[in-house]
Design a protein around this nucleic acid. Structure first.
Length: 281
DNA sequence: GAGTTTACCTGTACGC
DNA sequence: TGCGTACAGGTAAACT
């Protein structure tokens, strides 16, 4: 599942392959893939034809490609989205949703998405930071991320710490996998109330979040199946480094207790019952 | 207004 | 073999 490390891996690959190239055509093969582009697929194709990609940027799990028109292509991978570079003669992928060709006749950019939770749209005048994603907080790897402000905000919330980590308006880029990993490292159960965390506890947690994310970026992300791959179709290998996520009934790497799985926010959470005791209710 | 729940999706695994 | 069901989970709308 694409979280910050996966999206960053895609961003790096994309920027290498599409920066400076001019779009010839943008072909929408499935309307749901551009459902957030309200003017529709004909408009999507028309505003992109002839535009040159200036850069590939990221805010949290969102990507955006500033164009020479001042607009930008916004992309989100959702659960199963992929942005792949493919030679023109390569066979269409089963879940190919959008295809970009370039005036140089080189490799195509293809948006492939099995579950169609992801999507693309064009943001008018969005070459800076598109309005559509301005509500997304900076991610903790961003040099402008404000630790003091984050600490104050999370301690001011009346919610559980895992909910807070998944709240993209508070801190971006963290999803279910890396939230569980950071909480395991911090020795915190996900239901711990945020207003009871001390400042040093928040600082430690933030440090673990950064460690997990940066280690995962180096590994090229986490791939459980073929649903996450980089622009060249290669898997990441951070799944070998997971301590909590997906390890139900396996021994904790730190204390040997059996990792438990619990339902939380309609998804699975994994934690060590000894290292991460539940708070008293 | 803040916090929480639900809908959106489809392929895969599994039990009967 | 085929059918039904549970599950994966990021985001935003809907709800409390």
């Amino acid at each position: 599942m694409p979280e910050l490390p996966e999206v960053e891996t895609v961003r790096i690959g994309l920027s290498k392959w599409v920066t400076g190239r001019t779009i010839a055509t943008a072909e929408v093969l499935h309307p749901r893939a551009i459902r957030r582009h309200l003017p529709g697929d004909a408009h999507f194709a028309a505003v992109l034809a002839g535009r040159t990609v200036l850069d590939v940027s990221r805010r949290g799990k969102y990507l955006w490609l500033p164009l020479d028109s001042g607009d930008a292509i916004i992309g989100h991978l959702g659960m199963s989205g992929q942005l792949l570079m493919q030679p023109a003669e390569a066979e269409d992928e089963k879940h190919l949703r959008v295809r970009f060709t370039f005036t140089d006749g080189g490799p195509q950019l293809r948006f492939v998405d099995q579950r169609t939770f992801g999507g693309l749209s064009v943001s008018e005048g969005g070459a800076g930071l598109p309005d559509e994603i301005s509500h997304i907080a900076r991610d903790p790897m961003d040099p402008l991320f404000d630790d003091t402000a984050f600490t104050a905000r999370i301690r001011g919330r009346h919610t559980e710490v895992k909910r807070a980590l998944l709240d993209q308006t508070l801190i971006s880029g963290v999803g279910n996998i890396y939230a569980d990993e950071a909480l395991w490292r911090a020795g915190l159960h996900g239901t711990r109330p945020t207003d009871q965390l001390t400042r040093p506890a928040v600082a430690r947690l933030l440090g673990h979040v950064r460690d997990v994310l940066s280690e995962a970026i180096v590994a090229g992300g986490t791939s459980f199946d073929e649903l996450y791959v980089d622009v060249n179709g290669e898997s990441g290998y951070f799944d070998r480094s997971l301590n909590a996520y997906g390890r139900e009934n396996e021994p904790c790497h730190r204390c040997g207790a059996i990792i438990r799985r619990e339902q939380f926010m309609n998804r699975s959470s994994f934690s060590c019952p000894r290292c991460q005791p539940k708070p008293r209710s």
